[in-house]
Design a protein around this nucleic acid. Structure first.
Length: 796
DNA sequence: AGCACGCCGACT
DNA sequence: GTCGGCGTGCTC
C-alpha cells in the first residue's frame, strides 16, 4: 500500500504529494484525512494523508515507510480534502496551507531540535548550565549562547545526539476524578473527615466525582481524599473534559418570536430551497432591527429538523456576545462557538465537539466555515459585507466563496445577510445570480432614528476648534440629564496618533517600515503597527533637536480626556485595542455599559456592530470622513456601511434615538444616503462611480505584490512581472503599474505592486500559477518575494 | 523550509 | 592540514 502525503513544509518545491510505503502493521489505520509522521530528507515531519494507492510512479525501493500515524480517526473529512484542493487552486496557496487552515491551531505541529547529552561530565560548565534534569537542551538555546562549536565536537564524539521532536500545541484537558471502589468500607472512629466523605458518597450515590464537586458540599481538604485513595477505597483516574467557555450566562430560554408576514414569506423561500436541496444563495437585505436573526434561527431549526447541521458565521463573534447568548439560549448545548477570543485549547475543544458530531450548530468567525460537519443543511453569513470574511494572508480565502463551495457540495442554501450588502453581492442579486430577499421595515415597527449631519467647517468658522460640535455637546448634556446613555464612535480607519515635531514638521518613523510610529499613552511608547517595533517617546526631535515635539492626531484616549473636561460628571468607558487586550475584556466593558455603570461608551470600529442597549438614545460619530478619502475604491462603501451601522445602535427600543454625524464633507453621497437610510440610493450612485472607473463589480481585480530588501531590485522585478503579464493576458485586460505600495517598506523590505483589471480572463489562474512557478524557481534565490491576492478586499 | 554536500579562503 | 564560510540542490 502507498500513501500520498502532503508534508508540513510550505514551499513551492515541496507543494505536491509525496509517496510513502505503508508498513503492514499500519495498513489498517491508513485512510485519507489522517495525519502521519514521515521521514523527509534527513528529518522527520508531520503530514496529511490525502490519498491511498496500490502503486507509485517511483520505484518501490525509493519510497520510505511511514513512521507512525497520529490519528486513528481522520481529522479531515473527504469533503475537506476536496475543498483543500479547490482552495489551493482558487487562492494560489500551498496545498499544505490549505489543509492546515481546516484544523484547529492546537493540532498544528511545532518542531523543536533537542540535544541530548550522553555524558554530561564531558561538557563545559557553560554548556552544562543550560541542561535540563534529563540532560537535554533546546538547539536554539545553544545557538543563542554561542555554544554551537562545542556542540559540534560533542556530536562528533557521540557525547551528544540530536533529536527532532514534533509536538502538538495543545492537548485534551484532563481532570482528576475519584472513582468509588468500596462505598461501604469501614473506617476507624477518629477519621471523622474521611467518614464525612463516605457519608456524602452513600447519600448521593456517586460513583465518580471531582474534588471540586465534593468540596462544594463537604468541607474537606485534598489530603483527606488522598488518604481514602491510599486505603484503596477510592481510585484516582484522569478524565478528558472540555474547557468551559465563559459567557454572559443568561440561562433563560429564548422565546420564539412570531414572524411578521414579510419575514414569514422570506423564511418560506429559504425553507423551500432547503427542502428541495437547492444550493441557492439568498441575499437577505434587512435594515437594522428588521429581525434577520430570528429568520436565521428559524431557518437553522428547519435544517436541524431535516436532521442536518448549520454553520452560522459572524464577523467577529467576540464583539457580539449578545448573538452567542441568543444562539446558546435557543439551541443549548447543540451549539459550538469558535472565535478569536478563545484560547488555542478552547478552540480545540469546540472543534472536537463538531468533529465528534456532539453539536449540530456552529457559530463562529471566518475560519468556522471549515467546521467539519458531514451533513450541512444551511450556511449563513451575517453582515456579509464585512471585510473580516476575507483572510488577508495566505490562504487568502473569502469565507463567502468557501460557503458557496460547501453549499454546492452539500446541496443546501446559503444566506448572506446584511443591512448594507456589499456592492458586489447586491449587484449579483440584481442580476439574478443570488435571490434577493428584502426586509424593508423594522420588526417592532420602530422608526429608524433621525440622523443629523454637522458640517465641521462651519464649527471651525464659528470659532469652535474642539472635536465636538456645539450640537453634539448639547445633545450629550441633554442625555446625561435624562440619565440616558450615549455611544460615541471614533472612526479610526487609516488614522492614528503620531509624534510630530512642530518646528521641522517631521514625524518619528519606524526604522524597518516606511510608516510613522503610533503614539501609545500606555508606557509613553511609540509603536509600529506593522512590525511591532517599540521605542520611548523622544523628548527631542531626532531631526532638528527641537523640544517642540508632541503627539498629534486623535486617539480614543485624547477624546476621553476631552470628554472628561467637557462633562466632568459623566462616567466614560473606553473600548479600543488598548482596553480590550486582555481576555474577556470586551464582555466586561459591554456588561458594565449594559448595567448603566457608565453614561458614555467611547470606541472605534469594534463598537459599530451588534450592540443592543435599550437605554442608548444618542449616537455620535466624531469624524465620519476619515475613511472617506482613503486610496481604496471601497472607501465610500465602507463609510456608508459604517455610518449606517453605527446609527443602528440608537433608539432600538421604546426610547427614541438620535444620531449626530460630524463631517467636513456633508454633501458626499455616502453621508447623505446614510442620513436618509437610503441603501438603494447609495448603491445606484456608487455603481455609476464603479462603472466609470472600471472597478468591481464591473471589473475584477488581482493584486500582485513584489518585495525585496533593495529598492532597485524590487522595482526591476515588479516591472518584469508587469511585462510578463502584459504579453500573456488578453488585450482587454489592463495591467496597472508597477507602483510603489502605499506603505513602501515593511519589515525592511521594499514593496511594489501591480494590479490586473479584467472582465474576462479564463486563463488567469493558470497564468498566475505559471508566474508563481517562475518567480519561485528563479527569483526566490535572489530574495525576491511575490504574493498574489485574487479579489483583494482592500488595496493598500 | 531545513539540511547535507562541496568548494574555497584563513588559521592553529 | 582542518575549520568554517555560504552557494547549490534535494527532499517520496
Amino acid at each position: 500500500m502507498i500513501a500520498r502525503v502532503i508534508v508540513d513544509v510550505s514551499t513551492a518545491a515541496i507543494d505536491r504529494p509525496f509517496d510513502y510505503r505503508v508498513p503492514e502493521h499500519l495498513e489498517p489505520f491508513l485512510q485519507p484525512g489522517i495525519r502521519v509522521h514521515v521521514p523527509f530528507g534527513p528529518r522527520k515531519v508531520q503530514g496529511f494523508v490525502v490519498g491511498l494507492a496500490d502503486k507509485s510512479d517511483l520505484d518501490m525501493n525509493k519510497l520510505k515507510p511511514i513512521e507512525s500515524v497520529i490519528d486513528l480517526e481522520p481529522v479531515l473529512t473527504a469533503e475537506m480534502l476536496k475543498l483543500a484542493e479547490w482552495l489551493k487552486d482558487d487562492t494560489l496557496c500551498f496545498y499544505n496551507d490549505a489543509l492546515q487552515i481546516m484544523i484547529p491551531a492546537a493540532l498544528r505541529a511545532t518542531y523543536s531540535k533537542i540535544i541530548q547529552i550522553r555524558q554530561p561530565e564531558l561538557v563545559s560548565d557553560a554548556f552544562r548550565r543550560h541542561l535540563s534534569k534529563d540532560n537535554e537542551v533546546d538547539f536554539t538555546v545553544l545557538e543563542k549562547e554561542n555554544l554551537i562549536s562545542e556542540l559540534k565536537r560533542h556530536l562528533d564524539t557521540s557525547t551528544a545526539v540530536i533529536e527532532n521532536r514534533i509536538r502538538q500545541k495543545a492537548k485534551p484537558k484532563l481532570q482528576t476524578v475519584f472513582e468509588v471502589i468500596q462505598p461501604n468500607a469501614a473506617l476507624s472512629g477518629n477519621a471523622k473527615k474521611q467518614m464525612a466523605v463516605l457519608e456524602w458518597i452513600q447519600r448521593t450515590g456517586k460513583e465518580r466525582f471531582t474534588l471540586a464537586e465534593l468540596q462544594q458540599e463537604v468541607s474537606v481538604t485534598a489530603a483527606v481524599v488522598e488518604a481514602l485513595v491510599d486505603k484503596e477505597i477510592l481510585q484516582k483516574t484522569r478524565q478528558e473534559v472540555y474547557r468551559e467557555i465563559e459567557l454572559l450566562a443568561d440561562t433563560s430560554v429564548d422565546k420564539i418570536v412570531e414572524l411578521t408576514p414579510t419575514q414569514q414569506s422570506v423564511l418560506q423561500q429559504i425553507e423551500q430551497a432547503q427542502d428541495e436541496l437547492k444550493s441557492d444563495v439568498f441575499l437577505l437585505h434587512g435594515i437594522t432591527g428588521s429581525g434577520k436573526t430570528e429568520i436565521y434561527l428559524q431557518a437553522i431549526e428547519h435544517a436541524l429538523s431535516q436532521g442536518k447541521e448549520a454553520i452560522m458565521l459572524v464577523p467577529e463573534i467576540a464583539l457580539t456576545p449578545q448573538m452567542v447568548t441568543r444562539f446558546k439560549m435557543r439551541f443549548g448545548d447543540q451549539v459550538a462557538v469558535l472565535h478569536s477570543g478563545l484560547s488555542i485549547g478552547e478552540k480545540y475543544d469546540e472543534w472536537r465537539k463538531i468533529h465528534r458530531q456532539e453539536v449540530r450548530v456552529v457559530v463562529g468567525a471566518r475560519s468556522a466555515i471549515f467546521a467539519p460537519f458531514v451533513n450541512v443543511g444551511l450556511i449563513i453569513l451575517d453582515e456579509e459585507h464585512e471585510s473580516s470574511y476575507k483572510q488577508e494572508d495566505s490562504p487568502r480565502y473569502h469565507a463567502r466563496e468557501v460557503a458557496k463551495w460547501r453549499a454546492a457540495f452539500a446541496k443546501c442554501p446559503v444566506i448572506l445577510g446584511s443591512a448594507t450588502p456589499s456592492i458586489e453581492s447586491y449587484a449579483r442579486a440584481k442580476k439574478g445570480v443570488y435571490t434577493l430577499l428584502e426586509l424593508p421595515s423594522r420588526a417592532n415597527a420602530k422608526e429608524l432614528p433621525p440622523v443629523d449631519l454637522i458640517d465641521m467647517r462651519e464649527q471651525l468658522k464659528g470659532g469652535n476648534r474642539s472635536m465636538f460640535s456645539i450640537e453634539l455637546i448639547d445633545a450629550i448634556r441633554d442625555r446625561l440629564q435624562k440619565k440616558e446613555q450615549v455611544v460615541l464612535f471614533l472612526n479610526k480607519r487609516g488614522f492614528s496618533s503620531f509624534v510630530l515635531c512642530r518646528d521641522c514638521g517631521s514625524t518619528v518613523q519606524c526604522p524597518n517600515c516606511d510608516i510613522s510610529l503610533t503614539y501609545h499613552r500606555m508606557g509613553e511608547a511609540l509603536r509600529c503597527h506593522y512590525c511591532g517595533y517599540e521605542e520611548q517617546v523622544p523628548t527631542q526631535c531626532p531631526h532638528c533637536e527641537s523640544e517642540h515635539i508632541r503627539f498629534f492626531g486623535t486617539g480614543t484616549q485624547k477624546v476621553e480626556e476631552e470628554i472628561t473636561r467637557l462633562f466632568p460628571e459623566a462616567r466614560t468607558l473606553r473600548m479600543d485595542v488598548d482596553t480590550t487586550r486582555t481576555k474577556g475584556a470586551h464582555e466586561r466593558i459591554l456588561h458594565h455599559f449594559g448595567n448603566h455603570q457608565a453614561d458614555i461608551l467611547l470606541g472605534t470600529q469594534m463598537i459599530a456592530k451588534g450592540l443592543d442597549f435599550p437605554n442608548v438614545t444618542l449616537v455620535g460619530v466624531l469624524n465620519a470622513d476619515t475613511s472617506l478619502h482613503l486610496a481604496d475604491f471601497r472607501a465610500a462603501e465602507k463609510t456608508f456601511q459604517l455610518i449606517t451601522q453605527v446609527s443602528g445602535r440608537a433608539g432600538r427600543h421604546e426610547k427614541a434615538g438620535h444620531v449626530i454625524v460630524q463631517t467636513y464633507d456633508p454633501e458626499h453621497y455616502a453621508l447623505t444616503c446614510s442620513q436618509t437610510h437610503d441603501y438603494v440610493g447609495f448603491y445606484t450612485q456608487e455603481m455609476q462611480v464603479r462603472k466609470v472607473y472600471q472597478y468591481p463589480p464591473f471589473y475584477y481585480l488581482t493584486h500582485i505584490q513584489i518585495s525585496h530588501q533593495d529598492v532597485l531590485t524590487t522595482s526591476e522585478y515588479a516591472a518584469r512581472v508587469a511585462d510578463w503579464l502584459r504579453v500573456r493576458l488578453s488585450h482587454t485586460t489592463a495591467v496597472i503599474g508597477p507602483t510603489a505600495s502605499a506603505i513602501s517598506r515593511i519589515q525592511d523590505r521594499y514593496r511594489y505592486q501591480c494590479m490586473i483589471k479584467y472582465k474576462q480572463e479564463p486563463k488567469l489562474t493558470e497564468t498566475l500559477h505559471q508566474l508563481l512557478k517562475l518567480a519561485r524557481t528563479d527569483w526566490e534565490k535572489q530574495g525576491v518575494r511575490i504574493s498574489i491576492d485574487l479579489h483583494p478586499s482592500t488595496i493598500v
